[in-house]
Design a protein around this nucleic acid. Structure first.
Length: 236
DNA sequence: AACACAGTCAACCGCCCTTGT
DNA sequence: AACAAGGGCGGTTGACTGTGT
């Protein structure tokens, strides 16, 4: 009978908060043997902890490259953006934030953005992001209209000039050619349009904060921008 | 001061995937 | 191909702490 089996018979694995002594034993084990083979930790160190528990303690707390302290605004932005793309794939998000763990990011998300209402700062940031998107959308449409007008003018001039050249007669615009060009521009707009504003946004009265947030949460909670990852784990 | 409530975070649980036999 | 073990991952829980009343 090996040590693990006998431990299980004597009352199983220890649970609950880790002591400094246990942390020391685990750190020493990793220093000597490296990460991995977590199930052999109990055998080699005498720790009464399961392999899973040891791995978790190391990954989430003891690893020397962990960044301590609060999530910075920059990190928060990254979390928001990645969550919008990846959904609840915390480990994937954590890989983009050196020194942060999936557990940390998961906790942060649940605390600040999931359900209920987020912190003031989180709300302000999301609101700012939304307003920025709207502003960009307006600017884009304005410049597109300007371009369309200019192109229309140019084309009309060209058509008139070529006809004038060919016929040496008073200019008469080619309406068919102009209309074809306008149609082209209109269909091109559909393809070039930037991030379209979701219906939920468009329907919002600009000054109604509550409705705005309700809509944002519908977006986040529902299948709006979470890249279709509403379900629980295992979807790779 | 005492209590209630909310926020935070470490730790556990169960499921799933990968790998070795 | 089938099975078991190891490990990774997301969801959840519970203890602790801070804050408001």
């Amino acid at each position: 009978m090996d040590a693990i089996s006998s431990l299980m018979l004597q009352g199983g694995w220890r649970k609950g908060p880790w002591t400094a002594l246990e942390d020391g034993l685990l750190s020493e084990y990793v220093r000597q043997h490296g990460e991995g083979s977590w199930n052999s930790v109990a055998n080699l160190t005498g720790l009464r902890r399961s392999g899973k528990s040891c791995r978790l303690r190391w990954v989430n707390y003891l690893r020397p490259d962990l960044k301590r302290g609060k999530i910075t605004p920059d990190e928060e932005t990254v979390i928001l953006q990645l969550h919008a793309m990846l959904g609840n794939r915390w480990s994937a998000i954590a890989r983009c934030l050196p020194g942060r763990t999936d557990n940390e990011i998961k906790n942060y998300w649940r605390t600040h953005f999931k359900k209920a209402r987020p912190s003031r700062r989180a709300r302000a940031q999301l609101l700012h992001q939304y307003q920025l998107e709207q502003q960009q959308q307006r600017q884009y449409l304005q410049s597109l209209q300007f371009l369309q007008q200019q192109q229309l003018q140019n084309q009309t001039q060209q058509v008139m000039m070529s006809q004038q050249y060919e016929q040496q007669s008073p200019p008469e615009p080619d309406h068919q050619a102009v209309m074809a060009m306008v149609n082209n521009l209109q269909s091109a707009e559909c393809y070039c349009s930037p991030v379209s504003v979701p219906e939920q946004y468009c329907a919002l009265p600009a000054d109604d904060d509550e409705q705005l947030w309700d809509s944002l949460w519908r977006l986040v909670d529902g299948d709006g921008c979470s890249a279709g990852d509403g379900s629980s784990g295992g979807e790779y």
